[in-house]
Design a protein around this nucleic acid. Structure first.
Lengths: 209, 209
DNA sequence: ACCTGAACACCGTTCAAGT
DNA sequence: ACCTGAACACCGTTCAAGT
Protein backbone atom coordinates (compact mmCIF):
# COMPACT_ATOMS: atom_id res chain seq x y z
CA UNK A 1 0.00 0.00 0.00
CA UNK A 2 1.18 3.51 -0.81
CA UNK A 3 1.66 6.38 1.66
CA UNK A 4 -1.03 9.04 1.71
CA UNK A 5 -0.58 12.23 -0.31
CA UNK A 6 -0.67 14.64 2.60
CA UNK A 7 1.62 12.69 4.94
CA UNK A 8 5.17 12.22 3.69
CA UNK A 9 7.16 10.80 6.58
CA UNK A 10 10.54 10.16 4.97
CA UNK A 11 13.79 10.30 6.91
CA UNK A 12 14.94 13.44 5.07
CA UNK A 13 14.27 16.44 7.35
CA UNK A 14 15.27 19.13 4.82
CA UNK A 15 12.75 21.57 3.44
CA UNK A 16 13.62 22.20 -0.20
CA UNK A 17 14.26 18.65 -1.38
CA UNK A 18 11.46 17.49 0.90
CA UNK A 19 10.47 14.28 -0.82
CA UNK A 20 10.20 14.94 -4.52
CA UNK A 21 8.03 11.90 -4.91
CA UNK A 22 5.26 13.08 -2.59
CA UNK A 23 5.38 16.62 -4.00
CA UNK A 24 4.97 15.01 -7.40
CA UNK A 25 1.96 12.99 -6.27
CA UNK A 26 0.33 15.97 -4.63
CA UNK A 27 0.84 18.20 -7.66
CA UNK A 28 -0.29 15.56 -10.14
CA UNK A 29 -3.51 14.91 -8.21
CA UNK A 30 -4.28 18.60 -8.13
CA UNK A 31 -3.65 19.07 -11.85
CA UNK A 32 -5.37 15.85 -12.94
CA UNK A 33 -8.48 16.76 -10.95
CA UNK A 34 -8.52 20.38 -12.10
CA UNK A 35 -7.68 20.25 -15.79
CA UNK A 36 -8.02 16.55 -16.53
CA UNK A 37 -5.59 13.67 -16.92
CA UNK A 38 -4.93 14.01 -20.64
CA UNK A 39 -4.76 17.77 -20.62
CA UNK A 40 -2.03 17.71 -18.00
CA UNK A 41 1.35 16.99 -19.58
CA UNK A 42 4.34 15.52 -17.81
CA UNK A 43 6.33 18.52 -18.99
CA UNK A 44 3.94 20.77 -17.05
CA UNK A 45 4.34 18.68 -13.90
CA UNK A 46 8.10 18.47 -14.25
CA UNK A 47 8.42 22.21 -14.81
CA UNK A 48 6.46 23.12 -11.67
CA UNK A 49 8.58 20.62 -9.80
CA UNK A 50 11.85 21.99 -11.10
CA UNK A 51 13.05 18.81 -12.78
CA UNK A 52 13.12 17.30 -16.26
CA UNK A 53 10.33 15.24 -17.79
CA UNK A 54 12.64 12.24 -17.77
CA UNK A 55 13.18 12.59 -14.01
CA UNK A 56 9.57 11.60 -13.37
CA UNK A 57 10.35 8.16 -14.74
CA UNK A 58 12.65 7.60 -11.84
CA UNK A 59 9.64 7.60 -9.52
CA UNK A 60 6.90 6.18 -11.69
CA UNK A 61 7.16 3.84 -14.61
CA UNK A 62 4.45 5.64 -16.63
CA UNK A 63 1.93 8.46 -16.43
CA UNK A 64 -0.83 5.99 -15.61
CA UNK A 65 1.30 4.62 -12.81
CA UNK A 66 1.00 8.00 -11.04
CA UNK A 67 -2.78 7.63 -11.08
CA UNK A 68 -2.53 4.07 -9.85
CA UNK A 69 -0.47 5.19 -6.88
CA UNK A 70 -3.05 7.87 -6.06
CA UNK A 71 -6.01 5.55 -6.28
CA UNK A 72 -4.55 2.43 -4.69
CA UNK A 73 -5.35 3.31 -1.08
CA UNK A 74 -8.99 3.97 -1.78
CA UNK A 75 -9.48 0.84 -3.84
CA UNK A 76 -8.08 -1.09 -0.90
CA UNK A 77 -10.44 0.62 1.53
CA UNK A 78 -13.40 -0.29 -0.65
CA UNK A 79 -12.20 -3.87 -0.90
CA UNK A 80 -12.02 -3.95 2.90
CA UNK A 81 -15.57 -2.65 3.10
CA UNK A 82 -16.80 -5.33 0.69
CA UNK A 83 -15.01 -8.07 2.62
CA UNK A 84 -16.49 -6.82 5.88
CA UNK A 85 -19.97 -6.58 4.42
CA UNK A 86 -19.91 -10.17 3.22
CA UNK A 87 -19.65 -11.39 6.82
CA UNK A 88 -22.56 -9.31 8.08
CA UNK A 89 -26.23 -10.28 8.30
CA UNK A 90 -28.33 -8.54 5.67
CA UNK A 91 -30.23 -6.18 7.97
CA UNK A 92 -31.17 -2.52 7.79
CA UNK A 93 -28.47 -1.82 10.36
CA UNK A 94 -25.82 -3.43 8.16
CA UNK A 95 -26.99 -1.45 5.17
CA UNK A 96 -26.82 1.78 7.15
CA UNK A 97 -23.32 0.87 8.29
CA UNK A 98 -22.18 0.16 4.73
CA UNK A 99 -23.58 3.49 3.57
CA UNK A 100 -21.84 5.31 6.42
CA UNK A 101 -18.48 3.64 5.79
CA UNK A 102 -18.69 4.24 2.08
CA UNK A 103 -19.39 7.89 2.77
CA UNK A 104 -16.35 8.17 5.02
CA UNK A 105 -14.12 6.68 2.36
CA UNK A 106 -15.37 9.10 -0.28
CA UNK A 107 -15.22 12.14 2.02
CA UNK A 108 -11.64 11.26 2.90
CA UNK A 109 -10.61 11.04 -0.73
CA UNK A 110 -12.83 13.58 -2.38
CA UNK A 111 -10.09 14.92 -4.62
CA UNK A 112 -9.09 11.45 -5.79
CA UNK A 113 -12.68 10.42 -6.45
CA UNK A 114 -13.35 13.64 -8.30
CA UNK A 115 -10.37 12.93 -10.48
CA UNK A 116 -11.51 9.38 -11.14
CA UNK A 117 -15.00 10.48 -11.98
CA UNK A 118 -13.78 13.14 -14.39
CA UNK A 119 -11.33 10.87 -16.17
CA UNK A 120 -13.15 7.56 -16.30
CA UNK A 121 -12.23 6.70 -19.84
CA UNK A 122 -8.63 7.75 -19.52
CA UNK A 123 -8.19 5.72 -16.39
CA UNK A 124 -10.48 2.74 -16.92
CA UNK A 125 -7.73 0.59 -18.41
CA UNK A 126 -5.67 0.85 -15.25
CA UNK A 127 -4.09 -2.42 -14.24
CA UNK A 128 -4.27 -2.59 -10.47
CA UNK A 129 -1.72 -4.59 -8.43
CA UNK A 130 -2.94 -7.95 -9.73
CA UNK A 131 -3.95 -7.75 -13.38
CA UNK A 132 -7.48 -6.39 -13.64
CA UNK A 133 -9.22 -3.69 -15.58
CA UNK A 134 -12.57 -2.22 -14.55
CA UNK A 135 -11.30 -0.47 -11.48
CA UNK A 136 -14.57 0.55 -9.88
CA UNK A 137 -17.39 -0.92 -11.88
CA UNK A 138 -17.24 -4.40 -10.41
CA UNK A 139 -16.69 -3.07 -6.91
CA UNK A 140 -19.87 -1.03 -7.30
CA UNK A 141 -21.64 -4.20 -8.34
CA UNK A 142 -20.36 -5.97 -5.25
CA UNK A 143 -21.60 -3.20 -3.00
CA UNK A 144 -24.97 -3.20 -4.74
CA UNK A 145 -25.21 -6.93 -4.11
CA UNK A 146 -24.44 -6.38 -0.44
CA UNK A 147 -27.11 -3.71 -0.12
CA UNK A 148 -29.91 -5.21 -2.20
CA UNK A 149 -29.09 -8.89 -2.10
CA UNK A 150 -27.80 -10.86 -5.10
CA UNK A 151 -31.26 -11.88 -6.34
CA UNK A 152 -32.94 -8.53 -5.77
CA UNK A 153 -35.57 -7.06 -8.08
CA UNK A 154 -34.21 -4.69 -10.71
CA UNK A 155 -35.86 -1.78 -8.94
CA UNK A 156 -34.05 -2.49 -5.69
CA UNK A 157 -30.73 -2.95 -7.44
CA UNK A 158 -31.23 0.47 -8.96
CA UNK A 159 -32.12 1.94 -5.59
CA UNK A 160 -28.93 0.57 -4.11
CA UNK A 161 -26.82 1.80 -7.01
CA UNK A 162 -28.46 5.22 -6.75
CA UNK A 163 -27.67 5.36 -3.06
CA UNK A 164 -23.97 4.87 -3.72
CA UNK A 165 -23.92 7.27 -6.65
CA UNK A 166 -25.72 9.93 -4.66
CA UNK A 167 -23.05 9.75 -2.01
CA UNK A 168 -20.05 9.95 -4.31
CA UNK A 169 -21.40 12.47 -6.77
CA UNK A 170 -23.13 14.43 -4.02
CA UNK A 171 -19.85 14.77 -2.13
CA UNK A 172 -17.85 15.79 -5.14
CA UNK A 173 -20.46 18.12 -6.52
CA UNK A 174 -21.88 19.89 -3.50
CA UNK A 175 -18.91 19.94 -1.15
CA UNK A 176 -17.64 23.24 -2.48
CA UNK A 177 -20.85 25.19 -2.32
CA UNK A 178 -22.51 23.73 0.75
CA UNK A 179 -22.15 26.11 3.66
CA UNK A 180 -22.00 23.46 6.37
CA UNK A 181 -20.22 20.17 5.56
CA UNK A 182 -21.97 18.43 8.45
CA UNK A 183 -25.34 19.38 6.99
CA UNK A 184 -24.30 18.01 3.59
CA UNK A 185 -23.15 14.80 5.19
CA UNK A 186 -26.42 14.38 7.06
CA UNK A 187 -28.50 15.12 3.96
CA UNK A 188 -26.57 12.66 1.82
CA UNK A 189 -26.78 9.92 4.43
CA UNK A 190 -30.47 10.59 4.75
CA UNK A 191 -31.13 10.18 1.02
CA UNK A 192 -28.76 7.23 0.70
CA UNK A 193 -30.17 5.20 3.57
CA UNK A 194 -33.69 5.77 2.29
CA UNK A 195 -32.57 4.39 -1.07
CA UNK A 196 -30.57 1.54 0.39
CA UNK A 197 -33.69 0.09 1.96
CA UNK A 198 -36.19 -1.67 -0.27
CA UNK A 199 -38.84 0.23 -2.18
CA UNK A 200 -42.20 1.15 -0.65
CA UNK A 201 -45.34 -0.43 -2.13
CA UNK A 202 -46.01 1.73 -5.19
CA UNK A 203 -44.33 5.06 -5.80
CA UNK A 204 -44.97 5.68 -9.48
CA UNK A 205 -47.85 8.07 -8.88
CA UNK A 206 -46.43 10.65 -6.51
CA UNK A 207 -48.70 12.47 -4.02
CA UNK A 208 -49.42 16.18 -4.30
CA UNK A 209 -46.57 18.33 -3.03
CA UNK B 1 -28.85 22.13 -35.36
CA UNK B 2 -27.00 19.11 -36.72
CA UNK B 3 -28.51 16.08 -38.44
CA UNK B 4 -28.83 12.94 -36.34
CA UNK B 5 -26.16 10.27 -36.53
CA UNK B 6 -28.36 7.49 -37.81
CA UNK B 7 -30.18 9.48 -40.48
CA UNK B 8 -28.01 10.76 -43.31
CA UNK B 9 -30.37 12.13 -45.96
CA UNK B 10 -27.99 13.70 -48.48
CA UNK B 11 -28.71 13.91 -52.20
CA UNK B 12 -25.96 11.42 -53.04
CA UNK B 13 -27.65 8.05 -53.62
CA UNK B 14 -24.45 6.03 -54.08
CA UNK B 15 -23.45 3.38 -51.62
CA UNK B 16 -19.70 3.60 -51.23
CA UNK B 17 -19.23 7.35 -50.92
CA UNK B 18 -22.45 7.50 -48.92
CA UNK B 19 -21.90 10.67 -46.95
CA UNK B 20 -18.39 10.58 -45.56
CA UNK B 21 -19.34 13.11 -42.95
CA UNK B 22 -22.07 11.03 -41.34
CA UNK B 23 -19.98 7.87 -41.52
CA UNK B 24 -17.29 9.84 -39.75
CA UNK B 25 -19.67 10.97 -37.03
CA UNK B 26 -21.05 7.50 -36.51
CA UNK B 27 -17.60 5.92 -36.31
CA UNK B 28 -16.21 8.61 -34.03
CA UNK B 29 -19.11 8.27 -31.59
CA UNK B 30 -18.63 4.52 -31.45
CA UNK B 31 -14.88 4.76 -30.86
CA UNK B 32 -15.06 7.68 -28.40
CA UNK B 33 -17.66 5.84 -26.31
CA UNK B 34 -15.84 2.51 -26.45
CA UNK B 35 -12.18 3.37 -25.95
CA UNK B 36 -12.38 7.00 -24.84
CA UNK B 37 -11.91 10.34 -26.53
CA UNK B 38 -8.18 10.74 -25.94
CA UNK B 39 -7.35 7.13 -26.67
CA UNK B 40 -8.97 7.37 -30.09
CA UNK B 41 -6.66 9.02 -32.59
CA UNK B 42 -7.72 10.81 -35.75
CA UNK B 43 -5.37 8.50 -37.66
CA UNK B 44 -7.41 5.54 -36.42
CA UNK B 45 -10.66 7.15 -37.52
CA UNK B 46 -9.24 8.21 -40.88
CA UNK B 47 -7.84 4.74 -41.55
CA UNK B 48 -11.14 2.98 -40.92
CA UNK B 49 -12.78 5.57 -43.13
CA UNK B 50 -10.30 5.11 -45.95
CA UNK B 51 -9.06 8.69 -46.03
CA UNK B 52 -6.13 10.71 -44.70
CA UNK B 53 -5.99 12.34 -41.28
CA UNK B 54 -5.96 15.72 -42.99
CA UNK B 55 -9.21 14.92 -44.80
CA UNK B 56 -11.10 15.01 -41.50
CA UNK B 57 -10.33 18.70 -41.26
CA UNK B 58 -12.45 19.31 -44.28
CA UNK B 59 -15.51 18.29 -42.27
CA UNK B 60 -14.61 19.42 -38.76
CA UNK B 61 -12.34 22.18 -37.67
CA UNK B 62 -10.89 20.19 -34.77
CA UNK B 63 -11.21 16.89 -32.90
CA UNK B 64 -13.34 18.57 -30.24
CA UNK B 65 -15.60 19.90 -32.95
CA UNK B 66 -16.60 16.32 -33.77
CA UNK B 67 -17.78 15.88 -30.20
CA UNK B 68 -19.62 19.18 -30.30
CA UNK B 69 -21.50 18.08 -33.38
CA UNK B 70 -22.47 14.81 -31.67
CA UNK B 71 -23.66 16.47 -28.49
CA UNK B 72 -25.36 19.55 -29.91
CA UNK B 73 -28.76 17.99 -30.52
CA UNK B 74 -29.07 16.68 -27.00
CA UNK B 75 -27.97 19.90 -25.38
CA UNK B 76 -30.69 21.63 -27.37
CA UNK B 77 -33.28 19.09 -26.24
CA UNK B 78 -32.34 19.67 -22.63
CA UNK B 79 -32.52 23.42 -23.11
CA UNK B 80 -36.00 22.97 -24.53
CA UNK B 81 -36.99 20.93 -21.50
CA UNK B 82 -35.68 23.61 -19.15
CA UNK B 83 -37.51 26.34 -21.04
CA UNK B 84 -40.72 24.33 -20.95
CA UNK B 85 -40.37 23.60 -17.25
CA UNK B 86 -39.99 27.25 -16.38
CA UNK B 87 -43.50 27.95 -17.63
CA UNK B 88 -45.11 25.13 -15.67
CA UNK B 89 -46.63 25.26 -12.20
CA UNK B 90 -44.47 23.53 -9.61
CA UNK B 91 -46.65 20.50 -8.99
CA UNK B 92 -46.02 16.79 -8.61
CA UNK B 93 -47.46 16.30 -12.09
CA UNK B 94 -44.95 18.75 -13.57
CA UNK B 95 -42.09 17.03 -11.78
CA UNK B 96 -43.19 13.66 -13.10
CA UNK B 97 -43.40 15.10 -16.59
CA UNK B 98 -39.88 16.55 -16.34
CA UNK B 99 -38.54 13.23 -15.17
CA UNK B 100 -40.27 11.42 -18.02
CA UNK B 101 -39.03 13.83 -20.66
CA UNK B 102 -35.52 13.76 -19.32
CA UNK B 103 -35.58 9.98 -19.44
CA UNK B 104 -36.71 10.02 -23.07
CA UNK B 105 -33.88 12.33 -24.04
CA UNK B 106 -31.30 10.13 -22.34
CA UNK B 107 -32.73 6.89 -23.73
CA UNK B 108 -32.67 8.35 -27.21
CA UNK B 109 -29.04 9.35 -26.93
CA UNK B 110 -27.62 6.66 -24.68
CA UNK B 111 -24.43 6.30 -26.68
CA UNK B 112 -23.78 10.05 -26.69
CA UNK B 113 -24.47 10.37 -22.97
CA UNK B 114 -22.26 7.41 -22.21
CA UNK B 115 -19.48 9.05 -24.15
CA UNK B 116 -19.98 12.36 -22.32
CA UNK B 117 -20.02 10.66 -18.96
CA UNK B 118 -16.83 8.73 -19.68
CA UNK B 119 -14.92 11.72 -21.02
CA UNK B 120 -16.07 14.54 -18.79
CA UNK B 121 -12.67 16.10 -18.30
CA UNK B 122 -11.66 15.81 -21.93
CA UNK B 123 -14.89 17.39 -23.08
CA UNK B 124 -15.73 19.86 -20.32
CA UNK B 125 -13.98 22.76 -22.03
CA UNK B 126 -16.24 22.45 -25.05
CA UNK B 127 -17.42 25.78 -26.37
CA UNK B 128 -21.01 25.29 -27.49
CA UNK B 129 -22.53 27.42 -30.25
CA UNK B 130 -22.40 30.62 -28.20
CA UNK B 131 -19.27 30.76 -26.05
CA UNK B 132 -19.77 28.78 -22.87
CA UNK B 133 -17.91 26.09 -21.00
CA UNK B 134 -19.56 23.81 -18.42
CA UNK B 135 -21.67 21.95 -20.90
CA UNK B 136 -23.93 20.03 -18.55
CA UNK B 137 -23.24 21.16 -15.03
CA UNK B 138 -25.30 24.32 -15.16
CA UNK B 139 -28.11 22.62 -17.04
CA UNK B 140 -28.26 20.04 -14.28
CA UNK B 141 -28.51 22.86 -11.78
CA UNK B 142 -31.38 24.38 -13.76
CA UNK B 143 -33.24 21.09 -13.77
CA UNK B 144 -32.66 20.65 -10.07
CA UNK B 145 -34.11 24.11 -9.49
CA UNK B 146 -37.16 23.18 -11.53
CA UNK B 147 -37.69 19.98 -9.55
CA UNK B 148 -36.94 21.16 -6.02
CA UNK B 149 -37.55 24.88 -6.26
CA UNK B 150 -34.79 27.49 -6.17
CA UNK B 151 -34.91 27.96 -2.38
CA UNK B 152 -35.24 24.27 -1.52
CA UNK B 153 -33.57 22.66 1.47
CA UNK B 154 -30.21 21.03 0.75
CA UNK B 155 -31.74 17.60 1.24
CA UNK B 156 -34.36 18.19 -1.42
CA UNK B 157 -31.81 19.61 -3.84
CA UNK B 158 -29.84 16.42 -3.38
CA UNK B 159 -32.93 14.31 -3.91
CA UNK B 160 -33.63 16.09 -7.18
CA UNK B 161 -30.03 15.78 -8.35
CA UNK B 162 -30.05 12.08 -7.43
CA UNK B 163 -33.22 11.57 -9.42
CA UNK B 164 -31.59 12.91 -12.56
CA UNK B 165 -28.34 11.05 -12.00
CA UNK B 166 -30.17 7.80 -11.39
CA UNK B 167 -31.85 8.13 -14.74
CA UNK B 168 -28.77 8.93 -16.78
CA UNK B 169 -26.36 6.59 -15.07
CA UNK B 170 -29.03 3.92 -14.71
CA UNK B 171 -29.70 3.99 -18.43
CA UNK B 172 -26.08 3.87 -19.43
CA UNK B 173 -25.12 1.30 -16.88
CA UNK B 174 -27.96 -1.17 -16.84
CA UNK B 175 -29.24 -0.94 -20.41
CA UNK B 176 -26.89 -3.65 -21.63
CA UNK B 177 -27.63 -6.24 -18.98
CA UNK B 178 -31.29 -5.64 -18.28
CA UNK B 179 -33.38 -8.32 -19.97
CA UNK B 180 -36.42 -6.13 -20.61
CA UNK B 181 -35.82 -2.47 -21.49
CA UNK B 182 -39.41 -1.59 -20.57
CA UNK B 183 -38.88 -3.00 -17.08
CA UNK B 184 -35.70 -0.96 -16.70
CA UNK B 185 -37.52 2.16 -17.83
CA UNK B 186 -40.32 1.59 -15.36
CA UNK B 187 -37.94 0.90 -12.49
CA UNK B 188 -35.87 4.00 -13.20
CA UNK B 189 -38.94 6.22 -13.46
CA UNK B 190 -40.20 4.75 -10.23
CA UNK B 191 -37.04 5.55 -8.32
CA UNK B 192 -36.64 8.95 -9.95
CA UNK B 193 -40.17 10.19 -9.31
CA UNK B 194 -39.92 9.10 -5.69
CA UNK B 195 -36.74 11.16 -5.40
CA UNK B 196 -38.11 14.12 -7.33
CA UNK B 197 -40.81 14.63 -4.75
CA UNK B 198 -39.88 16.15 -1.40
CA UNK B 199 -38.51 14.05 1.44
CA UNK B 200 -40.75 12.22 3.91
CA UNK B 201 -40.64 13.28 7.58
CA UNK B 202 -37.55 11.50 8.89
CA UNK B 203 -35.80 8.73 7.01
CA UNK B 204 -32.43 8.52 8.76
CA UNK B 205 -33.38 5.50 10.87
CA UNK B 206 -34.59 2.94 8.37
CA UNK B 207 -37.19 0.29 9.32
CA UNK B 208 -36.39 -3.43 9.46
CA UNK B 209 -36.29 -5.01 6.01
C1' DA C 1 -16.29 20.17 -53.30
C1' DC C 2 -13.27 16.81 -51.58
C1' DC C 3 -8.90 15.13 -50.51
C1' DT C 4 -3.46 14.44 -50.26
C1' DG C 5 1.60 15.03 -48.65
C1' DA C 6 4.51 17.18 -46.12
C1' DA C 7 5.59 19.89 -42.43
C1' DC C 8 4.86 21.82 -37.41
C1' DA C 9 5.05 21.75 -32.32
C1' DC C 10 3.98 18.77 -28.76
C1' DC C 11 3.27 14.37 -26.37
C1' DG C 12 4.74 10.00 -23.44
C1' DT C 13 8.65 6.98 -23.13
C1' DT C 14 13.52 5.10 -23.26
C1' DC C 15 18.26 5.05 -22.42
C1' DA C 16 22.94 5.94 -21.97
C1' DA C 17 25.37 8.92 -19.24
C1' DG C 18 26.56 11.96 -15.36
C1' DT C 19 27.01 12.89 -10.10
C1' DA D 1 20.05 7.33 -5.38
C1' DC D 2 18.65 10.94 -8.24
C1' DC D 3 18.63 13.32 -12.40
C1' DT D 4 19.90 15.11 -17.44
C1' DG D 5 20.06 15.39 -22.77
C1' DA D 6 19.03 13.54 -26.65
C1' DA D 7 16.48 10.60 -29.31
C1' DC D 8 11.99 7.81 -30.64
C1' DA D 9 7.31 7.18 -32.48
C1' DC D 10 3.07 9.28 -32.22
C1' DC D 11 -0.33 12.99 -31.70
C1' DG D 12 -3.53 17.09 -33.39
C1' DT D 13 -3.30 20.79 -36.67
C1' DT D 14 -2.10 23.64 -40.87
C1' DC D 15 -1.46 24.57 -45.55
C1' DA D 16 -0.29 24.64 -50.19
C1' DA D 17 -1.47 21.85 -53.80
C1' DG D 18 -4.05 18.59 -56.68
C1' DT D 19 -8.61 16.96 -58.99
Amino acid sequence: MEENVSSAGQENGRDHGRDTRSRLRELALQLFAEQGYEKTSLREIAEQLGVTKAALYYYFKSKEDIVRSLVEDYVAQIDDLIAWGKDQPRTAATRAEIVHRYMDIVVNGTEVFRMLQQNQAAVSSLASAKERGELFRERMDSLVDLLAGPDAALRDQIRAASALMSISIGCMHYQRRAADPAELRAALLDVATELADAAPEQAALGPKS
